[in-house]
Design a protein around this nucleic acid. Sequence first.
DNA 1: TAATTTAGTGCAATCGATTACTCTTATCCT
DNA 2: AGGATAAGAGTAATCGATTGCACTAAATTA
Lengths: 340, 340
Amino acid sequence: MSDKVTIYDIAKTLNITAATVSRALNNNPKISEATRLLVLETAAKMNYKQNKLAQSLRSGKSHNVGVIVPRIDSNFFASVIRGIEEELRPVGYHVIITQTNEDEVRQSENITALLNAQVDGILMSISNVSEANDHVINNVVKQNVPLIFFDRKKEMPGVSSVTINDFEAGYLATKNLIEQGCKRIAHLTGDLSLEIFINRKKGYQKALLDNDLVFNEDYVLQTKSSVDAGRQAVQRLLGLNTPPDGIFSSSDFAALGAIQELRERGIKIPKDVCVFGFGNEPFTRFMELSISSVDQSPLEMGRMAAKVFLEQINNTSKVKIEKKVVLNPELQIRKSSTRI
Amino acid sequence: MSDKVTIYDIAKTLNITAATVSRALNNNPKISEATRLLVLETAAKMNYKQNKLAQSLRSGKSHNVGVIVPRIDSNFFASVIRGIEEELRPVGYHVIITQTNEDEVRQSENITALLNAQVDGILMSISNVSEANDHVINNVVKQNVPLIFFDRKKEMPGVSSVTINDFEAGYLATKNLIEQGCKRIAHLTGDLSLEIFINRKKGYQKALLDNDLVFNEDYVLQTKSSVDAGRQAVQRLLGLNTPPDGIFSSSDFAALGAIQELRERGIKIPKDVCVFGFGNEPFTRFMELSISSVDQSPLEMGRMAAKVFLEQINNTSKVKIEKKVVLNPELQIRKSSTRI
DNA sequence: TAATTTAGTGCAATCGATTACTCTTATCCT
DNA sequence: AGGATAAGAGTAATCGATTGCACTAAATTA
């Protein structure tokens, strides 16, 4: 009695065919009301559960989407996923999550595995841009599986994306530091093969330019998104002849490390050095010396990505939709960059 | 050329049958080496992708597991999920995540949807214990779908679980406060229909008892896991005739709120009041006044839950495994509870 | 009343992969 | 050389749900 009940079992019980049962369960108008009710009742009585796998095989739709992120245990990605799940669950989609750990091999494997699993779409934040990956990603497009990038994207024909305006974010954060009187602003950047970091840096540079500040290559350090990396970056910056008086970090964790290192050396924040982070991690708000940061509205980003996916799915025309949604970053200006 | 290639297509190309192709792809020894290689080569050339749905339908194994959590955008749950994914990906399982938002209706819906999707197992942290839910959860067991609780469990026959020793955690945290000289220790608890909160509270009580401190009902406040709730709790505690000199909170967020409220009122931490949190959220470590907290090793918990699931799956004997894994909590003693 | 429509079901193929069973050949042994 | 065995491949059923087409009987129309 525990073993799976199928429409055939119901059919046998009622002495009708599975076709009729299927139609009844799907409210097909060709079925008499009496039969329909009888089937529904019997199905409930027998504890019938629809086998989605069979349905998926037949329809070619798995009602699953794959999500690929570098890692899920980061506030940003977890929030994006939350947004995706909340948007897709009500319309009957399940969310499969996979992590790459920034490893391009795992990224390829994940994509392939998701395609094999017949997901109806892939939402991903790219980890790595390499030839091998390009090939696999192109496979997705070739197989007509909707692909949506969020946050970390890659310019590709036929692929939609949801990002924030990283250029603007970099520009505004830097401008904020300038307005606080910073003249020598350093920038902790990330993996420059990724558009987000390129754009944040460009915004930073443009803000300097617009305010007649010189751009100094020595002030730009490639830094991992970790507290330690932030500390090390500051160590290097303090070794320069003219150390910076402002830091725009493209990672909150690096910003935190920077702050810790600066304070340990007796440098006052924001008096001597102002710091601006990126990502609006929860701790930036919680610190006694709260850290200014750029909010990327991850929840909204996830929701948007899901919506774009649904649009693609429901797009009946032959013309492929290629939508580029750009969300506005929001500055959270806090103590670490507020001198007045 | 973009459309799905099946084994029938390969078969037609090579003028053999699909059965042979299938055997060749599965390294069935009954196939000649020559044919095998030919098939493999052709499959690669035609960009063949195995349709897991079809395979799943036939085998009755979806190679998907469902994970149900209250919400994914919490460091704890995200880390658990990370652990689950890392353990299951290498063995070919996909992880479907769903959230309940602590809503019992959504919880039931999610369970049902996952069962319909034919998941091979469900790993969940229970949100709510009610009659309706009991019924649905029992369904899982009845259908012989391995069910593993993590963190928030419910005692049920035939169901495995991975938790930390919450009693011990509550005991040790409270003991730490006592050792720091606290005599009047308050406890911010959670939803007392959940075992975790009951056990933490019991540990707290036992520690008081063992150290000849009186248990005062007024010192126990049911508090949501949020900064605001923590603040409110402190407001109420300070209204008592003899306010506490120590707080053991079963939530880091509430602990943070408590600290903020106390400090705003000029109460010194840890001098006047010591505070101990629960969960080891990242910010507890990052604060200048770092917050003592109980670490639940979420990554390990996720890994363990996944391992227990795999054991169940691979258990060929008819005897059901019912495994209760209890991890040891680890105190992270920090400034908020260190007077010396 | 005869012809035609319609409501309600059944039949059987399909989605793609797997596998127990059957059937050819080729090889082996005495 | 004749029969036994094995190697390699084909046939067809199966997993569960869906759906175009066919069919029957009742209802409608002329």
